[in-house]
Amino acid sequence: MRQWQSLKVSNDLLYRIYENEDTGPHFQLVTPHAMRREIMHQLHNVRTAGHLGREKTLNRIKARFYWPGMTDDVSRWCQSCMSCQKRKPGPGLGKSPMQHCTVYGPMECIAIDILGPLPTTDDGNRYIMVVGDYFSKWSEAYALRQHTAQTVADKLVTEFICRFGTPTRIHTDHGPEFESHLFARMCKLLDIEKSRTTPYHPQSDGMVERYNRTFGNDASNVCLGKQG
């Protein structure tokens, strides 16, 4: 009875008027019990849903649907998802101290990291180079056949710098491709400052490590979906 005033019938369907602080009021379809599992499956488990966490999955469902006890149902659904349990650490697990990086504008500092080796694609690629801007949090991923200094520098200049401009600083780990004479010369020619993560502690580059984990989770879930 408390929600009677927020209910509305349209085209023989029952809707609830939901007041969202960011987007304003919108209609949620009041969902019968028989449809709830399929809705949670479509908005969490399928390949395009991405196996997001409880809050993001709940917000997706709230945008279109409503039923009593929805928050608890979504929480249990995400906790019981086998793919999420395999790929994602629990609360407080897998976390390392992050290095604080203060920036005041786009391209003031970018981070670069290499993922791989991965299963070889049809094009012969086995590695992924991730480049992210600290200010905007914009990240891009580039497929590589190998991660030599020449390959990495060429991909960075032709695919990233030529499109977004020259960064003030590049932050990387201690990988040989980034510590090479060629990479140092590229930075000198383009007047780019070079900084490094803490030795044996790549998690100190928090932004790119977080992107790598998200990218790895999504890629793994896609592969698991294909196998299933």
Rank of each mutant, 00 (worst) to 15 (best):
L43F: 15
T57E: 03
P106S: 04
V103K: 09
M35L: 13
D72R: 14
G92M: 06
Q28M: 08
N20A: 15
K8T: 00
A63K: 15
R47E: 09
K88W: 02
D22V: 09
K56S: 12
L43P: 02
K95G: 10
S75K: 15
W77Q: 00
G94D: 11
T48C: 03
R47T: 12
S96G: 04
K88T: 07
M70R: 09
A63R: 15
R36P: 12
D12R: 12
H44E: 03
C101I: 15
L58G: 06
T23Q: 13
M82I: 00
C81T: 02
I61M: 05
G105L: 04
R87H: 11
W77I: 03
K95Y: 15
N11I: 07
R87W: 00
Q99S: 12
L52K: 14
S10P: 01
S6L: 12
P68F: 04
M98H: 11
S96I: 01
N45A: 07
R87A: 13
D73V: 07
A63C: 12
C101L: 09
F27E: 14
P97L: 05
L93V: 11
M40G: 03
T71Y: 09
F65D: 04
N59F: 04
M40D: 03
I61F: 07
I39H: 04
A63N: 14
H51D: 03
Y104E: 12
F27C: 08
P89I: 05
N20L: 04
M98C: 05
L52V: 12
N20Y: 09
G105A: 12
T57P: 01
G50F: 04
W77M: 00
Q99K: 13
P91R: 13
V74D: 01
Y15F: 15
S83K: 13
S83F: 02
G69T: 04
C101A: 05
R37G: 01
V74Q: 01
N45M: 02
Q79T: 09
H100T: 10
M82T: 00
L14S: 00
C84A: 06
M40A: 13
Y66E: 08
H41E: 11
D22K: 14
H26K: 11
Y15K: 09
A34G: 05
D22L: 12
N59G: 04
P25Q: 15
V74K: 00
R87P: 02
C78R: 02
G92S: 06
N11F: 15
G50Q: 05
T48G: 01
G50A: 08
S75F: 06
K8M: 06
Q42S: 06
P91L: 08
S6W: 07
A49V: 06
Y18S: 11
I17C: 13
S96T: 08
D22M: 11
D72M: 11
A34M: 02
T48S: 14
I39R: 03
S75E: 15
P106W: 10
L43G: 00
P68Q: 06
Y66T: 11
G24M: 10
L14W: 14
L14I: 14
V9S: 06
E38P: 00
G69S: 09
L13V: 08
R60D: 05
V74M: 04
D12H: 12
L7Q: 09
R64Q: 12
R16C: 02
S83W: 01
C101N: 05
P68S: 09
